[in-house]
């Protein structure tokens, strides 16, 4: 089984992967302390532009991956909108109580989830996992036994998927019947999860033993097949992010879209 997605490499592909990961993590932690929905709205426009034109993937891929984002927006905002606390009542029906405060807080949460969703799609679409792990070994000094284990495990996933299909066909050929309701679910999980887990653990054990024999767990004085360093693309990425954050900040103060500035 092989999945190949063709794309044109862009400047986002050339950023150092661990630098990209650290920057985005810092951004995530920083955004937890932003309570102004206007800021997020301006923030998101920039990220959308980058997502649409920066990844170098086909329109079909970009469009398909964007669909779940709308569901996330709805699911992370509705609970707060309907059941959040607030003073200015807009609508009340049974348990549902929509207030001005809870409404904007809900919108804020929805926007925040979208920002994170878009940023992570951006990362996933422009980063090759192999480079990410080589880079964490070289720049972040992650121990090679962790990095190579991750890479070996990723390689095993297609085998697991293939096994899953074989298992399904085997069960079908033998005419396995499931009970109805919860019991049937339990039977299904048992018939699938246990052979899949057992088989993968056995395979992982065999591979790990041979990897240890070949000194993949050796720490010092390693040489690497891929060399990753910093380039000026990293600086460009960092600066464009900082500039966009500043523009969003100024815009959110000058041109407010939502009539609230603090939703906490």
């Amino acid at each position: 089984m092989s999945i190949s997605i063709s794309y044109q490499p862009t400047w986002l592909h050339q950023i150092n992967p661990s630098f990209k990961l650290l920057t985005l993590t810092a951004l995530f932690i920083g955004l937890l302390f932003v309570h102004n929905p206007n800021f997020l709205l301006y923030m998101i426009t920039g990220i959308v532009v980058l997502y649409l034109f920066g990844t170098g993937h086909r329109w079909k891929v970009i469009g398909l991956l964007a669909i779940p984002l709308t569901i996330i927006f709805l699911s992370s905002s509705t609970t707060m909108i309907f059941f959040g606390e607030g003073e200015q009542t807009w609508f009340k029906f049974g348990l549902i109580h929509i207030t001005e405060e809870s409404f904007y807080r809900g919108i804020h949460l929805g926007l925040r989830s979208m920002v994170f969703g878009l940023l992570s799609l951006l990362f996933a679409l422009t980063t090759r996992p192999v480079y990410l792990f080589y880079s964490t070994m070289q720049q972040l000094k992650l121990k090679p036994k962790y990095a190579y284990s991750f890479m070996a495990a990723i390689r095993m996933l297609p085998i697991i998927v293939e096994e899953f299909q074989t298992l399904r066909q085997a069960l079908k050929v033998r005419g396995v019947q499931y009970s109805k309701g919860m019991k049937g679910m339990y039977e299904k999980v048992k018939l699938y999860a246990i052979p899949l887990l057992a088989q993968s653990i056995r395979r992982a054990h065999r591979i790990a033993v041979s990897m240890e024999a070949k000194q993949f767990s050796k720490n010092n004085k390693r040489t690497f097949y891929y060399h990753l360093g910093y380039t000026n693309k990293d600086l460009l990425f960092f600066l464009s992010l900082v500039v966009w954050l500043m523009i969003s900040y100024v815009c959110s103060n000058q041109f407010t879209v939502f009539p609230v500035e603090y939703v906490r």
Binding site: K145, Y146, Y148, S149, F150, A152, A153, I154, M156, L157, L197, S200, I201, R203, A204, H205, I207, A208, V209, M211, E212, F216, S217
Partner: peptide
Amino acid sequence: TLTDILITIVIAF
């Protein structure tokens, strides 16, 4: 050990 780590990661994946 590498064995523990690899098995853990495979289970996690």
